Amino acid sequence: MPSTDRRGRERAERHQLIITAARELAEAEGWDAVTTRRLAERVEYSQPVLYGHFDGKDAIVRAVALEGFAELAAQLGRAQPDGPSLHGVCTAYLDFADRRPALYQAMFVLPTDLKFASDETPEPLRAAFGELVTALIGQTSFPELLAELLWSALHGLAVLTQSGRIPAAGQAQRVDALVERMSHHARARTTTGRQSR
């Protein structure tokens, strides 16, 4: 193997090691504990090596968030293997947020330069949103708009539950109510739209 290929592979491995260490540290101790000094110690590289991969903590959070969106898209996709499943997607989304709170924070709470609903939106973000849209296909003639509302509701439920503002025990009932209202609204709008043409 040429030395340039080996160096490239080693660089990619170091890059991933830093991201993984940041995720593990954040899940164990919170994002405040994730510093370049702590990460350098954890991965056993000097801080200059760390800065050779990332400009600082914000860049690390961005990389973690991108991984998170790819994982979220995969989980939402697995929730609807036989076609659109609004209930499956809602449950999978909230389960993802509950099981990976620090990752969810990196994706949706901590500041990053990731752009949503833009020509510059990275593919993992598009893929995750696309799974929300897929869950609504067949129920409405405007699945993208309804997917934004669905996402907003799920995000609110996730954050309120994580912060203890609403009890986790009622989450299944909230999902049932959300799915029922979204489905009812979508059917009503589709029927109204057809009658007005």
Rank of each mutant, 00 (worst) to 15 (best):
R11G: 11
E27R: 10
H155M: 12
Y51Q: 10
D82G: 04
Y45G: 03
S85N: 11
V175S: 00
R6Y: 11
A169F: 06
A63F: 05
H185P: 04
R38N: 15
R194C: 11
R38Y: 13
L103H: 04
A73I: 10
Q173G: 10
Q47S: 05
M182N: 03
Y51E: 07
L160F: 07
D119N: 11
A135S: 09
C90Y: 01
D98C: 06
D32N: 11
P101H: 04
R194V: 14
E131T: 10
G68W: 06
E27A: 14
I137M: 13
Q171E: 15
H53G: 13
Q171G: 08
T91E: 06
L76E: 05
A102M: 04
T91K: 13
F116A: 15
R42T: 14
L150Y: 01
P124R: 03
T91I: 12
S183G: 11
R9Y: 03
H184L: 11
I60G: 00
Y45W: 05
A147P: 02
E27C: 14
G56F: 06
L157D: 00
R23P: 02
V49R: 00
S141L: 14
R165A: 15
E44K: 08
F129K: 04
L154F: 06
R197P: 04
E29S: 15
E180N: 09
Q47K: 06
Y104F: 11
D176M: 03
M182L: 10
L146R: 08
M107L: 14
L157V: 02
W151Q: 07
H155D: 13
T112R: 15
G130T: 10
A97V: 01
V133D: 03
C90V: 08
Y104N: 05
L72I: 09
P167A: 15
E27P: 09
S183A: 14
A59Q: 02
V49K: 01
H184P: 02
L114W: 03
T20W: 02
L145T: 12
R37H: 14
E44I: 08
L86G: 02
L72E: 08
A28F: 07
A59L: 03
D32K: 07
R126C: 04
P81S: 11
F129P: 00
G130M: 06
E120G: 12
S163P: 06
L94N: 02
L110M: 06
